[in-house]
């Protein structure tokens, strides 16, 4: 049996909003490590990896590893019925075909149960190799969201280049071109406002802005975002989920054939 109690239920609500437009159906895996998900978008260009560590839950019971296939749109519908301050408990029986989401108001005067049907999902689990990235950029997540949104009004591909000068986001379209350069800036009042550029080697890669924009749905989860780039690999766009885990989006680059 499985019983996971998350006091900060709004985190789970935000997590679902961050992935439901990218992935339709996915298996949530539950083990002693935590509650996790790995899934690709329907065109297999992007991959999302979510981990909510068991220590982040107030109560975490998972008697044996369990994989629960869920339609993320339906799960999102149910979680939208939870208040932002509600405590959310996820419950399931081993071998059962449903999962229950229980919402408790902070004052315990309202308790709701939503039972959702599980589904069988055939999904391949991919091995993500540990990599040394050529460049890693950390910046305010709202700034990254703004850049992706602005550039997608001009073009559909962003070129992200990291050099000694900073990180450059460029696009081109029918009406013209756009370049946005950010320089490292660590002299800020709040650490989350810093722009930190760690360049081991210069790198330049092209990506579809449509996916980048989709990743920025995770902006409410974290003040900062980390973008890791290597010329041989998909970019990793990572948002921390409070102290308990992360959402990592992997996006395959556009490459010359």
């Amino acid at each position: 049996m499985l019983e996971l109690r998350l006091v900060q239920g709004s985190l789970l609500k935000k997590v679902l909003e961050s992935i439901k437009d990218l992935v339709n159906d996915a298996n949530f895996d539950c083990s002693s490590t935590g509650f996790s998900l790995q899934a690709m978008d329907s065109s297999h260009v992007a991959l999302v990896s979510l981990l909510l560590r068991s220590e982040g839950f107030e109560h975490y019971r998972c008697d044996r590893n369990l994989s629960m296939g869920m339609n993320l749109g339906n799960m999102s519908k149910m979680l939208k019925c939870a208040g932002n301050d509600d405590i959310i408990t996820i419950k399931a029986d081993d071998g059962g075909d449903t999962v229950t989401f229980m919402f408790e108001s902070p004052t315990q005067d309202k308790i709701a149960d939503f039972e959702m049907k599980l589904m069988d999902i055939d999904s391949e689990h991919l091995g993500i190799p540990d990599a040394e990235y050529h460049s890693i950029v950390r910046m305010p997540s709202s700034e990254f969201q703004r850049i992706c949104k602005d550039l997608s009004t001009i073009g559909d591909t962003v070129v992200i280049s990291v050099t000694k000068e900073g990180v450059k986001f460029s696009t081109a379209g029918d009406i013209g071109t756009a370049n946005i350069v950010l320089r490292q800036n660590t002299t800020v009042d709040k650490p989350e406002d810093a722009i930190v550029i760690e360049m081991n080697e210069p790198v330049s890669l092209s990506f579809a802005l449509r996916y980048m924009n989709s990743f920025t749905k995770a902006t409410p989860l974290s003040d900062t975002v980390t973008i890791s780039l290597s010329s041989e690999l998909p970019v990793v766009v990572e948002y921390k989920v409070a102290e308990m885990g992360y959402i990592r989006y992997y996006l395959a680059p556009k490459i010359e054939e």
Partner: peptide, 14 residues
């Protein structure tokens, strides 16, 4: 001209 690569080009089934 560049074309969109798929994830499977980089990550293998585990």
């Amino acid at each position: 001209l560049k074309s969109q690569a798929r994830i499977s080009r980089f990550f293998r089934c585990s």
